[in-house]
């Protein structure tokens, strides 16, 4: 470990200890702490309601991705560490798409979609591994308080709307690709395979895809956030949260981002087969 790394770790640990001492002073009693658990801040504009935290945090994720993209814009012939990791990641994904998608014409578009989804979902999930600004909602959707370092940032993927948007987008894209690859008649015929009686089963199976796709990511990320909150409260914010943030944020976050994008590839390739 270099001297620079040691200083960085010491600063992070110092900041963490300070946040713990401050939080220890303001820890609410059990009844109050769990009253707002799972509730979101909801803003209504006429008949349209949304969670502003999702929009704010998704914007942060977009800015982080944009900053990173700009920092690796100038590719070198002899890659540095950052470029090597990126090249390895892109290469692994491309090989995976090449292995899965049967029609070579659709390899590149599928890769672009899957990679974009992976980068967004992974960066969103990583947000949940850092303590930050927490917006506490109440049963009627009103904002009750804003906490600083009392919990991790709320990942945009912990909101079902984000995941469902991506899942529906993949659903529409996969069918559009299928129509383009097989032609409209063959695509229509594929609903009646192996015979016409199975059509309702095929229809239900297709409708279930975006639901299982989005709910799986939502359950893992939102569930992880709730578990972390409960455990963090139980041990009064002392040391263990770092492990929990790491486990649910980095480990589970990476696995789920990978699973989500693998399913994007699988659903598109299933329509092309």
């Amino acid at each position: 470990m270099s001297r620079k790394d040691k200083i960085f770790l010491a600063v992070v640990f110092g900041a963490y200890t300070m946040a713990w001492i401050i939080n220890l002073k303001y820890i609410p009693p059990v009844g109050e702490a769990f009253k707002t658990l799972g509730h979101r801040w909801v803003v209504s504009l006429g008949s349209f309601s949304f969670n502003p935290v999702t929009i704010i945090n998704a914007s942060i994720v977009f800015l982080v991705i944009l900053w990173f993209a700009l920092s690796v814009r100038d590719l070198k012939l002899i890659p540095d560490r950052k470029q090597s990791i990126l090249e390895w990641l892109f290469n692994t994904f491309y090989e995976m798409v090449e292995d899965t998608v049967p029609d070579p014409k659709f390899v590149r578009p599928t890769f672009v979609i899957a990679m974009t989804v992976f980068i967004f979902v992974w960066t969103s999930n990583m947000l949940a591994s850092f303590p930050g600004v927490v917006f506490v909602g109440w049963e009627n959707g009103k904002l009750t308080e804003i906490g600083l370092f009392t919990d991790t940032w709320q990942a945009p993927t912990a909101d079902l709307n984000t995941n469902l948007t991506y899942a529906l987008m993949v659903f529409v894209i996969s069918h559009a690709f299928a129509i383009k690859a097989k032609g409209f008649k063959a695509w229509l015929k594929s609903w009646f395979e192996p015979n016409a009686i199975m059509m309702p089963m095929n229809l239900i199976g297709e409708l279930a895809k975006p639901i299982s796709h989005s709910l799986r990511l939502f359950g893992n990320i939102a569930g992880g956030a709730i578990l972390t909150y409960i455990f963090t409260y139980m041990i009064k914010y002392f040391l263990l949260p770092v492990f929990l943030w790491g486990f649910f944020g980095i480990f589970v976050g990476t696995i789920q981002a990978l699973v989500f994008s693998i399913l994007v590839i699988a659903y598109i390739s299933a329509q092309l087969t």
């Binding site: 292995d99 239900i204 199976g205 279930a208 639901i211 299982s212 709910l215 799986r216």
Partner: peptide
């Protein structure tokens, strides 16, 4: 790539479970 593929194969187990639950939810 083969090692990575072996890891991805584990996804089939959760995929099966999620498919069953999602189908029940949709038809329900």
């Amino acid at each position: 790539m083969k090692g990575f593929r072996d890891f991805v194969k584990f996804n089939l187990i959760t995929a099966f479970g999620a498919t069953v639950v999602a189908n029940i939810a949709v038809v329900g």
